[in-house]
Design a binder for these strands. Structure first.
Lengths: 144, 144
DNA sequence: AGTATTTACTTAGCAGCGCTAACTAAATGG
DNA sequence: CCATTTAGTTAGCGCTGCTAAGTAAATACT
């Protein structure tokens, strides 16, 4: 436990925290162009990528309680981005599926958001790009 | 073609985005222990580290409109975490300063949050720690 | 100097997102 | 067959954001 490595760890943690905050803050700007709020966009994303799923499962995936998800789904439905199908296996439940319009909107938004990042990453040298990817491999471990 | 060069820029961007989201989500958990909401904690942080400053400057720093900051400050004042001093240079304005209690609470929270990260980073091998830090150097560039 | 404009902040009121508590209706199980 | 559990909804609350409109002090313009 030498002094240098302790200081480094804290500094690494601090820089990581700060970088994550600034990164997401700058990307949020792109999301506003979709016309959907962050929670709606995020819920729609799960519906698009995790296929038709029940409201409870969706609430769970979004770490939100069922009543909150009820409302989010109602609003996405009103905009025709999502639709409900009866669940053949359970009369109380239904499956929430993305409409073509919902899928289109989400993919466009994702493209915009990732596109903003891609532009910045493409400006890096190959060596820096490689360093970034190496760091991401480690980052994935500590965020699980 | 080595492995890294077959990874697209899009994939890097996507992984970076996802890692940032998951990292911050897991750290938010630590912040709840402070008893303050995220916006209040964040505003308090600016007051503590950017010294006494005017409400408008604080609103600006937090990317929030003045009325929103008025309310946040009122609530922090009520809990005696922050205090207002008249601005000697301008009778309409005042300077917002952290109280000792506010400073203490913030530093404890920061310690907790960074501490949670430190614990995870310390579990890494030296090699992985180095890779992470290398990645952060690059990340700092692209988040500006 | 005296009025007009701008600036700093507050108040009022609205919408979105999170929650819990309490409800309905369907499924399950003794 | 009735009791319990499970899936989702409704009602209602608190917090955070906003805009619009107000007050009061500073500044600018004759």
């Amino acid at each position: 436990m030498n002094r240098t490595s302790t200081l480094s760890t804290e500094e690494t943690a601090d820089r990581l925290h700060s970088a994550a905050i600034h990164l997401l803050r700058s990307l949020r700007h792109e999301d506003e162009k979709s016309g959907l709020s962050a929670p709606r966009l995020s819920a729609l994303s799960v519906v698009v990528f995790a296929g038709p799923l029940r409201l409870g499962a969706l609430a769970n995936a979004e770490r939100v309680r069922a009543p909150t998800m009820t409302r989010l789904v109602q609003e996405l439905e009103k905009e025709n981005l999502v639709r409900r199908e009866p669940d053949p296996a359970d009369g109380r439940a239904f499956r929430i599926a993305a409409t073509p319009k919902g899928r289109r909107l989400l993919l466009q938004g994702r493209k915009r958001r990732i596109g903003a990042l891609v532009k910045r990453i493409d400006a890096l040298s190959n060596a820096d790009h490689a360093r970034l990817r190496n760091g991401l491999d480690v980052l994935a471990q500590i965020t699980q």
